[in-house]
Amino acid sequence: MVANPQFSYMSPQEYLEWEKTQELRHEYIDGEVFAMTGGTKPHNRIAGNLFTKLDDFLAEKGCEVYISDVKVQVSESGPYHYPDVVVTCDQRDKESIDVVQYPCLIVEVLSPSTAAFDRGKKFTCYRQSSTLKEYVLIESDEIAVECFRRNEQGLWVLHTYSEEDNLDLESVGISIAVKKLYRQVRFDVEEKN
């Protein structure tokens, strides 16, 4: 993410109106606007693989799954984030065309430039959502998955998954082989500038 130097402060409503007119996506945190950076092929492939599995599974279950272009609104005043994958099973979210307010599952595919933020401040923001049950972090430069799941006491418990495991997403009732998340992902390709 890159801060937008044009604005010193923007209200949530100003952000929502302004962002509708922008070609690029921007996240909103505490009055500041941040341009979203581009991803890599592994990042895109992993998010796409997960989206496909979830979309097929949830098609007849009353849940909706979105990939990267739909904002999650954590509270009335923001922040607004664009997760890589988000699932909502809440009927209230059917009333909006561009925002999910009641997610049950949020997934971020990590990149070296965003990993610390996704693990830290972004997760802190997402935890404010009373409907969120699972937060999944998927590495894009190695095979590794972390799922933070809210237990019955409201505590977030970490579950880790490796290449031979199945990722259990209790929030939506599906188990996905971790290998399938990384289908057609190549780690041995060098980045070219």
Results as ranks from 00 to 15, higher is better:
S175F: 06
Q13E: 15
Y9P: 00
T124I: 06
H43L: 07
T52V: 05
T131G: 09
R149S: 11
I106P: 09
S8E: 12
D56W: 14
T40F: 08
A59G: 03
W156Q: 03
F117D: 09
K71S: 07
Q22Y: 07
D168R: 11
E60H: 14
D93C: 03
A3C: 08
D118Y: 07
L54K: 13
R119Y: 11
V136W: 08
R150F: 07
E108S: 12
N151W: 12
Y15S: 03
C104P: 00
G154D: 10
G154C: 02
N193S: 09
E19C: 07
V72H: 08
Q184W: 02
A116R: 15
G48V: 01
H81R: 15
L137N: 06
G39E: 09
R127E: 11
K180M: 07
Q22A: 13
N4T: 13
T21L: 15
E108V: 09
S75Y: 00
Q153H: 09
I29N: 13
S68G: 02
L158T: 03
F51S: 05
I174E: 04
E191Q: 14
E164V: 09
G38K: 12
D55I: 01
Q22K: 15
R183G: 00
S8I: 13
T40M: 05
V100F: 12
F57R: 14
L137Q: 01
I143P: 03
V33F: 12
R119I: 04
Q91K: 12
C104W: 04
G154F: 09
E134K: 04
N44R: 08
S111V: 05
E19T: 14
D168C: 08
F34A: 04
T124A: 05
D90I: 02
Y161C: 01
K53A: 14
E95Q: 14
V145H: 03
K121L: 03
R150D: 05
I67V: 13
D141A: 01
P12F: 05
I176E: 06
Y9V: 13
S140D: 03
I46L: 08
K180L: 13
F187Y: 02
P5I: 05
